[in-house]
Amino acid sequence: MNKFNLLLLFILNFLFFSCGSNNGNKKSDFSLNIDENKSSFNLNESLKASIVNSKNKSIDSVSYYLGDQYLNSSKNGELDLKLQDVLLGNQDIKAIIYTDETTDTLSKNVKILNAEAPTVYTFEIVNSYPHDITSYTQGLEFHGDTLYESIGQYGSSKLRKVDLETGEVLKEIKLDDQYFAEGLTILNDKLYQLTWQEDEGFIYDLDTFEKTGTFGYDQSKEGWGLCNNGEKIFKSDGTEKIWILDPENLTEQSYIQPTHHKSISTKLNELEWVKGKIYANTYQKDGVAIINPENGAIEGLINFSGLRDQVTQHNKLDVLNGIAYNPNTNKLYVTGKNWDKIFEVKIVEK
């Protein structure tokens, strides 16, 4: 390369790094102010923000975003946002400041909580059915009137097709010993099954249980629960996030954060789609959250305390885990890890 080309390359690099967006290495001349220095808001509250311009620099405009959602642009740099139709949980308020010289991006994290406390429900046992006491239930779902179950533990993980009335195992395959099976869901005659920490999910033909594909976890680290609404697949991973997956390639496109009026929930495990809502049990708890899939609001809590007392008590008896809704009969069923019964339950407001 001759001296002229080297000089030209140097000039181009200099211009590139001297203009355009503030990349964070240079301290911004602006700061983002949120009224009253609040960091937590409830749905339907107003969030007010402004730009502090201590050097009185000329600003062309300021564009505001909540996460990736565009809010508005203004010349004076002020934001007055009524928190409606927004995602709950931890969100970033982002301001992009345009001047003649630079584009600066500022952000602050805020927590958006639900406006109302969740409705509390309890349960009534309608019926009970036999369940394999050795089944460490991780996922449970109906397809038609037939029950499908994912069973966990290293060396004992299985996928089963089960007759609800008798508990008879109609079909079963065992996973390789290095896999710990987790949640499952069925969509378009394909069965999807998670593994826990192996960063891999399996796709099966629903009729034959022949494995037809696999998928990775992309942004999440673990596999916990699965459900679907007929179009999209929802996946929990033990964190505050429930991921929304593209059913074509199983990529994690976005997420919601289940949130009630006081805090953001974590350790949501087995998932079930029930009448437009996501039902999710909290790992090692007796509660099931009823979640709005549009914004993450926890609208209800079902207290299943005492249900475990209704099964045979033994030294391997474990926690509630397993929710199955049959839309054909409008009936809801729950079980647990190493429980010898599946219960049909009626949910009643407390």
Rank of each mutant, 00 (worst) to 15 (best):
L8C: 10
I291P: 13
V348A: 09
S263A: 15
Q310A: 06
T282A: 15
N315L: 06
Q84M: 09
G225C: 00
S58P: 10
F234V: 04
V120W: 06
Y192S: 01
I342N: 00
N109C: 03
G201S: 01
N228Q: 01
T137H: 03
P130V: 01
K48C: 11
L12G: 05
G167Q: 14
K316P: 01
Q219S: 11
N330C: 07
Y98P: 00
Q153L: 15
D92H: 08
Q313Y: 03
S236L: 08
I59K: 00
H314F: 08
V162G: 04
L43K: 12
L66F: 04
N315W: 06
L191C: 10
F41S: 06
L83Q: 11
T239R: 03
K108P: 07
G216H: 08
L332R: 04
I51K: 05
L307W: 07
D309E: 12
L106E: 07
Y65F: 14
K331R: 13
R160Q: 15
G216N: 08
K94P: 01
A49D: 08
P130F: 03
A49R: 14
Y204E: 01
S128F: 03
V126M: 12
F215S: 06
I264R: 12
G144D: 07
D207L: 05
F17I: 13
I59A: 00
P130E: 01
I93A: 08
T195W: 00
V345L: 08
S46K: 15
Q284M: 12
H131W: 01
L184I: 03
L8G: 07
T329I: 06
N72M: 12
Y283G: 15
V311Y: 08
V348K: 11
D104V: 10
K346E: 11
I186F: 05
K158L: 11
F41K: 05
F180D: 13
G167E: 14
I278S: 13
L320H: 15
L79T: 08
D237A: 09
A49K: 14
N37H: 05
L320C: 15
P130D: 01
F16G: 04
N2R: 06
I291V: 14
I342Q: 00
T335F: 08
E231I: 05
P247Q: 06
T105Q: 14
Y192F: 06
I347K: 00
L81Y: 13
F180P: 13
K331L: 10
N321T: 04
N330V: 06
L8D: 09
D163Q: 13
L81H: 12
I93K: 11
D205M: 02
K337L: 09
R160G: 14
K55M: 10
V345Y: 01
V334D: 11
F41Y: 11
I278K: 14
Q84D: 12
E240D: 12
D80A: 04
K285S: 15
F41W: 05
